[in-house]
């Protein structure tokens, strides 16, 4: 039998391989796509063109055995590593037999460009880079999720939605444990002492896998953040 802990998938992506919802980006800028005025239309076009040159968009995941032990109502084990995911996420992962731990990033280039413009002469352009960076990161997350879904469906298994430290009372400090399951700097992403990711436009988390797991949309009534990228997903 294959040791699933040995399976690590890593993939770089080109911008044009990702599904980016430009209509949503326009709405984030305050307009419908067809009504986007200058300078926003020009900025969005500029950022899209620039993103086609990005070479550091990346996603990686590793499959782990999922063990439910100890305080099962609030924790979940990926192999020997315990994640204190909190009640909400633990409940979603309750029937998982495996976990996919993942790290995805839009890369250093766009994260740095966004920061430079936001702090510099053109904060609006910086903001367009910022929301595009977030969109790319989530699009990579979607790709990774689809890869996992396709892979496990061959075994008759399903996946849950993806869950990240920092949300639903899963302490962001657990990101150190999550990263310990990968070689150093997966996809070039590193952690600060306070468990924050660099590049900024990165996400990490887990996806539950099993024959009896259920894919549920995020429980947005638990949160009061109206513009969250996960709302309704």
């Amino acid at each position: 039998m294959m040791n699933i802990a040995d399976v690590i998938f890593e993939q770089t992506y080109r911008f044009d391989e990702l599904t980016i919802d430009l209509d949503q980006l326009s709405r984030d800028l305050g307009y419908e796509f067809d009504d986007l005025p200058e300078p926003f239309a020009g900025y969005l076009e500029q950022v899209v063109d620039d993103c086609r040159h990005l070479t550091d968009i990346c996603g990686t995941y590793r499959l782990m055995d999922c063990v439910h032990s100890g305080d099962g109502a609030r924790t979940v084990m990926a192999g020997n590593v315990e994640f204190k995911v909190g009640k909400t996420i633990a409940n979603e992962l309750l029937r998982a037999e495996k976990l996919a731990v993942f790290v995805c990033t839009a890369g250093k280039t766009i994260s740095e460009k966004s920061a430079v413009f936001l702090k510099g002469d053109d904060p609006v352009l910086g903001y367009v880079y910022d929301i595009m960076g977030s969109a790319i990161t989530e699009a990579v997350g979607d790709e990774i999720q689809q890869v996992i879904s396709r892979e496990v469906s061959l075994l008759g298994e399903k996946i849950t939605n993806r869950y990240s430290p920092g949300y639903c009372h899963w302490n962001v400090a657990d990101q150190h444990k999550l990263f310990s399951l990968f070689p150093a700097a997966p996809c070039g992403v590193t952690l600060t002492a306070s468990a924050l990711m660099h590049p900024v436009k990165s996400i990490s988390g887990v996806i539950g896998i099993g024959k009896n797991v259920v894919f549920r949309h995020y429980q947005c009534d638990l949160c009061n953040m109206p513009n969250c990228v996960y709302r309704g997903k």
């Binding site: 984030d28 305050g30 904060p123």
Partner: peptide
């Protein structure tokens, strides 16, 4: 009635 980019423009 306005969004982040418009506020950024105003701030600029």
């Amino acid at each position: 009635k306005v969004f982040v980019p418009q506020v950024l423009m105003s701030a600029k």
